[in-house]
């Protein structure tokens, strides 16, 4: 679909890889780019889910292929980029979204084992590096610049009890800023999306909807985010609409990180000169 009138958000003729696009935020971003005209390469470990994403994109009139990929393998990520170029002739956008929590829960810090830490770092940080590097290599070979969007996490900007995941996502934020610095001379922009608490899909039942409402009241906007709300931001960052923007973090969290000092209901009332 070409936006009419011609718009800086238009992705017509552009090729984008979205890793982790079998569900949730990645799927929403893949569909948003496809709806704006991009040819989308959907990557994830599980073939069935990305095939479903591709089916939804094509039934909406878009263009996409599914390429099952283990993003923790640098050879597999290189092959993903090669496959995208083989299919569509070029690459313009890499959205390095794959990642996930995982790792053991409820362990004390000093109990956390090597293999669990390494696994979380591989899934969330190494995967982003492999994706960014493979894309940059292709962008430089094409000589026309390119766009990288990494997906980090609000947990990376504040400590929390998950530990390994925010640590790895903190690395993604540093990766974004350094890669932006190193790649700017090749007209390659690198930015990061920093999501807060986002629902990955519609609620399965009223009970789940209720759980979400209860969690949502702790967010300044009084609700959790929804998967599809990542699409418009991904499109802004992937398109020429953001052509002068690089090395930045785009926090999308309903105001959580802007506050966080107290319950959202706390509104101290105090007059100047009143006894304290």
């Amino acid at each position: 679909m070409v936006l009419d009138p011609p718009s800086p958000f238009d992705m017509d003729g552009k090729v984008a890889i979205v890793t982790g696009s079998g569900r949730g935020l990645g799927k929403a971003m893949a569909k948003a780019l496809a709806a704006a005209g991009a040819q989308v390469v959907c990557a994830a470990r599980t073939p069935e889910q990305i095939e479903q994403t591709v089916a939804e994109i094509t039934s909406d009139g878009g263009t996409a292929i599914a390429v099952p990929t283990d993003v923790t393998s640098s050879a597999a990520v290189d092959a993903l980029v090669a496959r995208a170029v083989e299919a569509y002739g070029r690459l313009d956008v890499m959205i390095a979204n794959a990642g996930g929590g995982g790792g053991p829960q409820n362990l004390e810090f000093w109990e956390y084992p090597d293999d669990a830490f390494e696994s979380v770092v591989a899934t969330n940080l190494k995967s982003a590096f492999y994706s960014d590097r493979a894309a940059a290599r292709q962008f430089v070979a094409q000589g026309e610049g390119g766009v990288i969007v990494n997906v980090a996490s609000g947990t990376a900007l504040r400590g929390n009890q998950q530990f390994a995941y925010p640590t790895a996502k903190g690395g993604v934020i540093s990766l974004t800023k350094s890669a932006a610095t190193m790649l700017a001379k090749h007209d390659i922009r690198v930015n990061a999306i920093v999501p807060g608490y986002i629902n990955q899909r519609p609620p399965r039942d009223e009970q789940e909807a209720e759980v979400r409402r209860n969690r949502g009241v702790r967010v300044p906007v009084r609700r959790l985010g929804d998967w599809w709300e990542l699409g418009p931001l991904a499109l802004y960052l992937a398109s020429d609409a953001s052509r002068y923007v690089t090395g930045e973090l785009f926090i999308i969290d309903g105001g959580g990180l802007a506050g966080g000092l107290a319950p959202v209901t706390f509104a101290p009332a105090h007059e100047i000169g009143a006894a304290s």
């Binding site: 966080g260 107290a262 319950p263 209901t265 706390f266 009332a269 105090h270």
Partner: peptide
């Protein structure tokens, strides 16, 4: 006490942040 009024439960919750 100007911003942590002890009569306000949220003030106590804020301190526990």
């Amino acid at each position: 006490q100007d911003r942590l009024d002890e009569r306000n439960d949220d003030a106590g919750r804020a301190v526990r942040f």
